[in-house]
């Protein structure tokens, strides 16, 4: 059985390493400062005892006030999981650091989020639309898109 890690406990570890990176830690998930996503992910990936080597799911939700990017991480070594969240408040040009340099699996999922929700991932090598054609107006999964 995959054990979901308690958000607050992991958040303490992150705080020790990167002060100010965690905005809010809940039971199930950790809300991160969107600038430090890449550093935290690298920390989670490389720290012994955490070893989050598998990015299961990367997606984003449009809450109208802000976008929330959600990362579902799993460690195959220890069989535990963690949910990370980061918020983008800029509606016109939301950006967040890309995690493709840590998990190759983020490649298509980040492109998908960009395509459908319009969140740019800084540092992605090929930030193009994935499903819709180049030149499509708007991002369909936003709640204000028709």
């Amino acid at each position: 059985m995959t054990k979901p890690l308690i958000g607050t406990e992991v958040a303490e570890k992150i705080e020790e390493h990167l002060p100010g990176a965690v905005v809010e830690a809940g039971e199930n998930s950790i809300l991160l400062n969107s600038e430090s996503v890449l550093d935290i992910c690298r920390f989670l990936n490389q720290t012994a005892g955490l070893d989050f080597d598998y990015l299961t799911n990367l997606t984003a939700v449009d809450y109208l006030d802000y976008f929330e990017v959600v990362y579902h991480l799993v460690s195959m070594k220890h069989n535990h999981s963690l949910v990370l969240k980061a918020r983008c408040f800029n509606r016109e040009n939301p950006t967040i650091p890309s995690v493709t340099s840590i998990w190759g699996g983020a490649d298509f999922q980040e492109r998908e989020v960009y395509d459908l929700l319009g969140i740019r991932f800084d540092g992605h090598y090929n930030m193009k639309r994935i499903f819709l054609w180049e030149g499509f107006q708007g991002h369909p999964l936003r709640r204000d898109f028709l």
């Binding site: 299961t56 069989n79 998990w103 699996g105 983020a106």
Partner: peptide
Amino acid sequence: INYSVSGPMLRASGVKWDIRKDDP
């Protein structure tokens, strides 16, 4: 693992990971 590959492809690479067993 790094590319989030799953299912038979992942297991064919030698990773013993099956959600039916690991997260039943």
